[in-house]
Nucleic acid binder design. Structure first.
Lengths: 190, 190
DNA sequence: ACCTTTATCTATCTACTGGTAGGAGTATAC
DNA sequence: GTATACTCCTACCAGTAGATAGATAAAGGT
């Protein structure tokens, strides 16, 4: 198989396992069995498991940044952009009760290197910044009603999104995640 | 050492390690080395690691229920009660960048038995119910300004609290957790 | 004194962990 | 056509995981 294919395949499986069960909860063997190559071949691409974690973080940040940029380009106003972001988060993490990759790695932060931990911090910072700008934009274009401090609302929103994904994994209510994220949307609806 | 002392000692260490690093990230050996007994002695109290997880959940739910009840008894109005709850959560989990025990076990849910998972779901449900009642009480006694749907606000609040604890572990801002929880308080301030 | 329970120990098990050394086959470059 | 780089393999390692069986010693009850 092509180098990129295998590397991508490894990361796809590792990403899914991380978001479903946590970074400590799977081994190179688990990946190797699913993909059909030996564990030593995985070490060829990711010499240590921390390298794999860092690659997952980089990839996830790229993926979400791209997604948010697409939203900015394709949605006309702040409200629609915010809504698009919530749908993106549900599409990325919500199915199968998966946690946001960066959220899960924050829980498992002992397993990742210091540079990768720093990137996790940057991820949340950038997520908050995007949300702040989007809320401001929405207030300006009239699609979102007045907010006292958009930067504060954005911080609450990001925390609530991550927390909702965490709680959804064990919540007894079947539609907890979409319902809770919808509350966030209802809050800014004009 | 007395049976209860040892059992409590084991749980104290396991609770701290779970909240700091995750349930997968420590072993019976780690506990045994810190406490000074053999791993087989820990198996005497908790035959399987899942038993330990379940005991931690039960204990944590009891502890927080007691804490919330104390708050209800000692604070006069909804606003003060809500504030007391936030301070309790910070005191329990906020130091040393620990995650709420139930939040961490939700992330590590594959490691806990189905009955224990169910208890995690109940925990978040009860937490939300307490918050809903407290917000309603605050609106009624005038300590909290009018809320359109207290039950929705409560759901957002609980998610935001759990999410903030998760993000705080890797956040680059030093006072992220207290500041973010303070935003929740500011939101209901009359 | 004798039996039972409690709490701990020693010793051991199987399975798995991340990780490494070195080689075989294959594709590409020159 | 040979050299080089790439991809995956076999074989292995030391350490660790959770877990069990059985011995031991002390304490308590009768």
């Amino acid at each position: 198989m092509n180098k990129l294919d295998t590397k991508t395949h490894i990361m796809d499986i590792a990403r899914r396992m991380t978001m479903q069960q946590g970074f400590d909860a799977f081994s190179y063997r688990d990946i190797s069995e699913e993909i059909g190559i030996k564990t030593s071949s995985i070490h060829y691409y990711f010499p240590s498991k921390q390298d794999l974690a860092e690659a997952l973080v980089d990839d996830y940040i790229d993926y979400l940044s791209q997604g948010l940029q697409n939203i900015n380009e394709n949605f006309p106003n702040g409200y629609e952009r915010f809504k698009g972001m919530l749908e993106l988060m549900i599409a990325t993490s919500g199915q199968e009760k998966q946690l946001c990759l960066c959220g899960m790695l924050s829980a498992n932060m002992h397993a990742v290197s210091e540079p990768a931990r720093h990137k996790l911090g940057e991820f949340f910072q950038r997520f908050e910044t995007w949300t702040t700008e989007t809320l401001k934009q929405g207030v300006q274009d009239g699609s979102i009603h007045h907010l006292v401090r958009p930067v504060s609302t954005a911080a609450e929103m990001v925390a609530a999104i991550e927390g909702a994904m965490l709680i959804a994994r064990v919540c007894l209510r079947p539609n907890y995640l979409p319902e809770t994220l919808d509350l966030l949307l209802a809050r800014i609806r004009p």
